[in-house]
């Protein structure tokens, strides 16, 4: 059974804004019966250009219904510019998160929103763009690229969770891998201010102190920062970590992941002996 948040359950059992807005200025229909979920989104704006009403109809599971219900709530009162900025992650966050296998439900919401806004602006339908990669679910390379880029996806499994692509016959897995590496090679806009070395070391020390050490100590282990050379973080494992066979995994999956998340994405943690 899926672990749904109370928010998901609330929106699922008592969905808000079910139906179709009369005289809608933005209309979208995404998904299909074959794929197992589909969403019809309609909205209209008032004189100030703000969304005054939004409604949905969904064929799909609990999280698809909840995502659509929550999206319509989020839309009300927003200008088109504001609405355009809503991401699939925002939809998931509004529900207190979704199981990872269900992220595609939030992506469906985002797709509907995009299409409805395009319709509102009188732009042509975007859905034909790109080439179909996943034949089973009719997902194009553009859609996969977008999901990979916006959600920093790195594996085929994640792409399947977000877009459904690759969830059927699996014939397209190689193509999906190519797309992931292609997007990964793109130059990422650097939004993060560059850290000075002193700042970096300070942040690493702080993260180890607050985020890493307490967890290791629970298992009787400890960690000591020895040096930082460029992006290499040299550490010594102490206590039970020093003799633990799984310490390499702890380093990679926990310490390095934490430091990359909190400090700098390119950090590499290395264990040194003293």
């Amino acid at each position: 059974m899926w672990e749904y948040t109370d928010k998901v359950k609330e929106h699922f059992l008592n969905p808000k804004n079910v139906g179709e807005v009369e005289d809608a200025s933005g209309v979208a229909e995404v998904g299909s019966m074959a794929c197992g979920d589909a969403l019809k989104l309609t909205f209209k704006t008032d004189e100030d250009g703000k969304i005054s009403d939004a409604k949905f109809k969904t064929f799909g599971c609990a999280s698809a219904i909840a995502s659509a219900s929550s999206l319509t709530e989020m839309l009300k009162g927003k200008t088109i510019d504001e609405a355009e900025k809503i991401t699939n992650q925002d939809i998931a966050d509004s529900l207190g998160g979704l199981p990872k296998e269900k992220m595609h439900c939030s992506v469906l919401g985002r797709q509907a929103l995009e299409q409805a806004i395009a319709h509102y602006k009188g732009e042509p339908k975007k859905e034909e763009e790109g080439e179909i990669v996943c034949e089973c679910f009719g997902v194009t390379d553009r859609e996969i690229e977008k999901a990979v880029r916006e959600n920093n996806l790195t594996t085929v499994e994640e792409v399947t969770n977000y877009t459904k692509a690759g969830g059927g016959c699996e014939n397209c897995h190689d193509t999906i891998r190519e797309i992931i590496s292609r997007v990964g090679d793109e130059e990422k806009p650097v939004t993060r201010p560059k850290l000075s070395n002193i700042q970096k070391i300070k942040m690493i020390e702080e993260t180890i102190e607050k985020e890493v050490r307490p967890s290791l100590k629970q298992d009787g282990g400890d960690i000591e920062l020895v040096d930082v050379i460029g992006n290499r973080v040299l550490v010594v494992m102490r206590g039970s970590c020093a003799v633990c066979k799984a310490s390499q995994q702890t380093l990679e999956n926990f310490v390095e992941a934490k430091l990359r998340e909190m400090v700098w994405p390119e950090l590499v943690v290395e264990e040194v002996t003293q």
Partner: peptide, 14 residues
Amino acid sequence: EFVEGEAILLHMDE
């Protein structure tokens, strides 16, 4: 027809 099974299950679960 035209509804999704998991949604039915969760309603029945209530």
